[in-house]
Each structure stands twice: as C-alpha cells, then as structure tokens.
C-alpha cells in the first residue's frame, strides 16, 4: 500500500523568514574568514594527488630508447580499444628485438582506466598527472609515439605543474 506523505506545513516562525536569512548569512560570513580554496586556473594549476590517471606517456630506458616492445598487451587490455600499435623488428642489435613502429592512442576514446599500465610487462606505458590537454580538432587528440615520448620528457621529474614553464597559458 502506498504511503501518503504530507507536504511540510510552515509554522509561524518559518513564515517570518528572517531567522532563515540570518542563518544563511552566518554561513557566508564564516567562510569569509576561512582560508580560500579556489584556484585561479589557468594562471594557477592544481597539482593532482599521487596515482592520478591523466595523459599517457611512453617511458624511455637508461639508453634513452623507447622501453615498449610492442607486445600489444595494453591494446588487448584496453576496454575502449583506443591503442593502435604496429610492431616491427628493432633497428638495435643488443637483445631488444621488437619495438613499436607506430604507437597511437586515441585520447577521445580513452577512458583513463589505467588498465594499459597494469597490463604492461615492461612498465613502458604510464598515465601521468597531466589533465589539461584539450585541443580544437579530433586529429590532434590522437597522440603518436613521438608525442608520448615527449610527455615522458616533460613528466619524468614529476614537476609538470610546479615547473613554471608549463604554467604559461597557451594560445
């Protein structure tokens, strides 16, 4: 059986409205005296917490070469199917046989779940703290191998947002 809920009947005290007004203003003045939490984006940037999943990067090894071996584990694990790898035999002959000839991530498809970095056996792909990478065309949001390696260079010191260079507003 359905229950009938009666609407709230305002009392005389409620109908005065002035106490409610004072209550509300009290909250406002309380916050006026507290420390401000607003960040003046984009002049100021929020530094995300450790473990934040933002833009991807492809790591480099000690010799400065791409760590990825194009094993396709990330694209197999990817639920959004946004990673496209073309593998090939590597130009180096010191044991690293395989490397990605092309490595593309469609950032518009990506859901930033982090499965790719979990699947990676070489710790080659990682999600960084970068969250502001909007652009004007869809094509520019397909990031390729060089782009991903650039992200590594920018974020390897973990100071992407504290680094003043990156704080300048791009046109």
């Amino acid at each position: 059986m359905a229950t009938i809920i009666k609407s709230y009947e305002p009392t005389f005290w409620d109908k005065l409205y002035i106490p409610a007004l004072v209550q509300g203003l009290l909250v406002t003045f309380k916050h006026l005296l507290r420390k401000k939490v607003t960040i003046q984006y984009p002049e100021e940037k929020l530094i995300p917490p450790e473990g934040y999943r933002g833009l991807h990067r492809l790591n480099k090894d000690a010799n400065g070469r791409i760590k990825c071996v194009a094993c396709d584990m990330c694209s197999a694990a990817c639920p959004a199917d946004c990673i496209d790898i073309i593998p090939g035999s590597s130009p180096w002959d010191d044991g690293k046989e395989r490397y990605p000839v092309s490595f593309e991530i469609d950032l518009l498809k990506c859901i930033f779940c982090g499965f790719c970095e979990m699947a990676c056996p070489e710790e080659a792909i990682e999600l960084t703290e970068i969250y502001d990478f909007s652009d004007y065309t869809r094509e520019k949001l397909i990031i390729d191998k060089d782009g991903l390696l650039d992200v590594y260079d920018k974020t390897k010191d973990k100071n992407y947002y504290s680094n003043s260079q990156n704080l300048t507003i791009k046109e």
Partner: peptide, 9 residues
Amino acid sequence: YVHKNRIWN
C-alpha cells in the same frame, strides 16, 4: 611473419 602482429589480433 616475425614481429608483424599478435595472433589474438
């Protein structure tokens, strides 16, 4: 076929 693709693709 070496390093061309993965079999599950």
